[in-house]
């Protein structure tokens, strides 16, 4: 049966509508969180690399001294 008819009112199709709204919210929030997490990982790696190349004994610092 496609949909159950209420007594004289509109059919009860609210379950599908609730799932669709919740799913859309989960999808958008999930992607935003994923992007935030990826950004955080890249930043942490960037900070680590910059810290390493800034330390006096590093290869990067040696190259810069040579230049």
């Amino acid at each position: 049966m496609m949909m159950q008819m209420g007594a004289g009112g509109p059919p009860d199709t609210s379950t599908y509508y609730h799932i669709a709204y919740a799913w859309a919210a989960i999808l958008y929030t999930g992607y935003s969180l994923l992007l935030w997490s990826r950004g955080r990982r890249v930043r942490a790696r960037l900070r680590a690399l910059r810290g390493r190349s800034a330390s006096p004994g590093s290869a990067g610092a040696a190259a810069r001294r040579g230049a």
């Binding site: 949909m3 509109p10 009860d12 199709t13 609210s14 599908y16 509508y17 709204y21």
Partner: peptide
């Protein structure tokens, strides 16, 4: 969409999926 939009007479609440779709 959830609280201040009327439910369509023929399709019922499922019509509101239109607003996200």
């Amino acid at each position: 969409a959830i609280f201040f939009t009327p439910i369509e007479a023929l399709q019922g609440a499922a019509q509101k999926i239109y607003y996200v779709h």
